[in-house]
């Protein structure tokens, strides 16, 4: 004990003053590093196992170049306009496949071309709506040249996964009552429309003002669902 005291005294005597002055800074710095490391580790682990913690802007919702409201297009009831605050518009209950046309036939669900949007929005929607103005500009309805819209991707699978929408929609729509682990309400249907089964993985998009990923969409989830529904679980079904 005494030797320790002496050691400390010796240290106190020999250590230069500038180091002593820096000590609290170093201590705080060390703590800060630990805190950051911990936070990063926690983030990485949650990102690996599921969805990231919705803090620091790591939320799944993304700001799209045009604030497209899925609510007004696909929902039922009154929804706020994204372009004109304070206005409410009746949901149109459009079918998902009206825009996502290739979902029943192809790998990708498909994002509609601007031309499809402008088919209606040439006429529909007030001119003062700034979001619609962006769309009309992209569609070439103004003086400017038409230009594509770069939507931000919400659902993205890794490069080594080959997900194909078509067989999933086919299975889910053909015998909705037999599906295990289906979205609420699907089992009660005797025959389902494609748009009634999207929510199995995508959640209730019709009620989302900004679309976000609601399911983890990790391999474990895919495999669980495949097992429950006796779908093939061979690796090559998705990985090739």
């Amino acid at each position: 004990m005494a030797s320790l005291l002496e050691f400390i005294k010796e240290k106190h005597r020999t250590t230069p003053l500038w180091i002593k002055a820096l000590a609290p800074v170093l201590l705080l710095g060390g703590l800060a590093v630990f805190a950051v490391t911990g936070a990063v580790t926690a983030f990485v682990i949650t990102a690996w196992l599921g969805q990231p913690i919705p803090v620091l802007g790591f939320d799944q919702t993304v700001k799209q170049p045009i604030a497209f409201p899925h609510t007004i297009h696909a929902g039922t009831g009154l929804f706020p306009s994204t372009g004109l605050p304070g206005q409410f518009i009746d949901g149109l209950e459009m079918d998902c496949t009206f825009c996502h046309r290739t979902v029943t036939s192809q790998a990708n669900a498909g994002v509609p071309p601007v031309a499809l949007c402008s088919y209606c929005h040439k006429v529909i929607g007030p001119e003062e709506n700034p979001e619609l103005a962006k769309l009309r500009k992209a569609a070439g309805l103004t003086e400017e040249d038409p230009s594509p819209i770069n939507w931000k991707r919400v659902h993205r699978l890794p490069d080594h996964v080959r997900f194909v929408h078509e067989p999933h929609i086919r299975y889910l729509t053909q015998h909705p009552s037999e599906i295990r682990n289906a979205a609420p309400g699907v089992n009660q249907l005797s025959e389902a429309l494609p748009s009634q089964v999207c929510s199995t993985c995508h959640g209730d998009v019709a009620s989302m003002l900004e679309v976000k990923q609601v399911e983890a969409l990790k391999m474990g989830q895919c495999v669980d669902c495949h097992r429950e529904n006796e779908a093939p679980t061979d690796c090559t079904v998705c990985h090739h």
Binding site: P158, H160, C235, H239
Partner: peptide
């Protein structure tokens, strides 16, 4: 790498 039920020797890159 494993043998799948379709008689193929398979290489799974992500594994």
């Amino acid at each position: 790498t494993y043998h799948n039920p379709e008689g193929m020797n398979v290489q799974i890159y992500n594994r």
